[in-house]
Design a protein around this nucleic acid. Structure first.
Lengths: 213, 213
DNA sequence: TTATATACAGACACTCATGGATGTAAACCG
DNA sequence: CGGTTTACATCCATGAGTGTCTGTATATAA
């Protein structure tokens, strides 16, 4: 039965793909190794060859994906002169990708539904905290540069944006994708930023980001 | 060992209280009946006397609580002449109660973390859908009465509010309650409503709701 | 060609949770 | 005061899932 290395890698990704679906449908805690293996068309023998246990599988699954929060983190890291603008663009871009990438959506669901005791949950908590920290840094910088309306502290503004992005992702999935995520998200975030700036309308159009059409 | 009826009811609520904590800490799927029973200071015998199985326990837990979404539903049902105002007040009021009621928070966590296959999850999906429907009705009515800014359709506005409320609840818990929920939520929702109205500031101060200080 | 490592399949023992059965002491009722 | 029901505690049989171990066929290296 010995398969070649390419075939072996094929079954490994088959297990990962199956796990992504099963974990998303049933939840990580409920899903069983045997169920994942069967869904991948192999036996538990193959599974235990490629992975140590279920937690190891989840780790591999997490390693091969890039959650929208992480994407915002990496994209917005390269700040241009307008920090609010950078954050806005990064957020909208990640919403766009999230909307069309079902694998990303499944991983987001899986990570969001992890039970507290689960070790893998620490990853999500970490990137969420990092995102919040980034948003706060952006707002602090905006505040320092006088780009923030007097009505809002940096902490206020950070919470508003964090809540909006998190709410968009969660409500979109929970509602069964009943609204266009990127479109509504973009107008909502633009309005938000405009509100935080104190101007009535959008920020200056310049910038290296994707065209809002 | 036979206890009186009052004592029996006491152990029943003890089991419910323990389950609320255990389910919240470990997740419903991972939690075990024996663990809940031990946490309640009784054996599984007592549990199976009061409840049919774990799902029955969850049902009883759900029955004795009122999630913030349901509270908004009931509170906002009695609309005054200004539907946006009613919705805003109902939302803020439910945020206020949620912020101080740890039991409510635990139940929200439990229900939110239910795996898809779980039967009890339908309850949450139902009230979420009802809340979205209510918000949409409010926005439609506001639109009909010309209280909505031309930039937004009723559907747009509904999504914005739904995302904001959902985002507030989720992000507040997920962040470890790092910001004052009701305070930030109120300013955020007020700004939102003002934005949807097209006015720059708050709606007229009149109304039977709680004083915003 | 032979030896060895690889990539699994299948069997086994173990744990753990479940649900039902049984035991039982106290409360309630006549 | 005796019988019955209640409110549990304890025990037992069952099943499901896990992890390990062994078997084995094949690719690969010598």
């Amino acid at each position: 039965m010995r398969r070649t290395k390419e075939e072996s890698e094929l079954t490994r990704t088959a297990i990962l793909d199956a796990a992504e679906r099963i974990f998303c449908e049933q939840g990580y805690a409920v899903a069983t190794i045997d169920g994942v293996s069967r869904a991948a068309g192999v036996t538990r023998g193959a599974f235990y060859w490629h992975f140590k246990d279920k937690a190891d599988l989840l780790g591999a699954l997490y390693a091969r994906s890039l959650l929208p929060q992480e994407q915002i983190l990496t994209t917005a890291a390269e700040m241009c002169s307008d920090p609010l603008r950078s954050l806005l663009d990064a957020g909208v871009a990640s919403l766009r990708e999230f909307e069309v990438d079902e694998g990303k959506q499944r991983m987001f669901r899986i990570m969001s539904d992890l039970t507290i005791g689960c070790e893998g949950r620490a990853n999500l908590a970490r990137i969420d905290a990092e995102l919040d920290a980034l948003i706060l840094r952006v707002m602090t910088r905006a505040e320092d540069e006088g780009m923030l309306h007097d009505d809002f502290s940096a902490a206020d503004a950070a919470v508003f944006v964090s809540v909006t992005i998190g709410g968009l992702l969660h409500q979109w999935l929970r509602s069964g994708k009943t609204f266009p995520l990127a479109a509504r998200g973009e107008t909502l975030l633009r309005r938000h930023v405009a509100m935080l700036r104190g101007t009535d309308r959008d920020p200056p159009r310049a910038g290296p980001a994707t065209e809002p059409a």
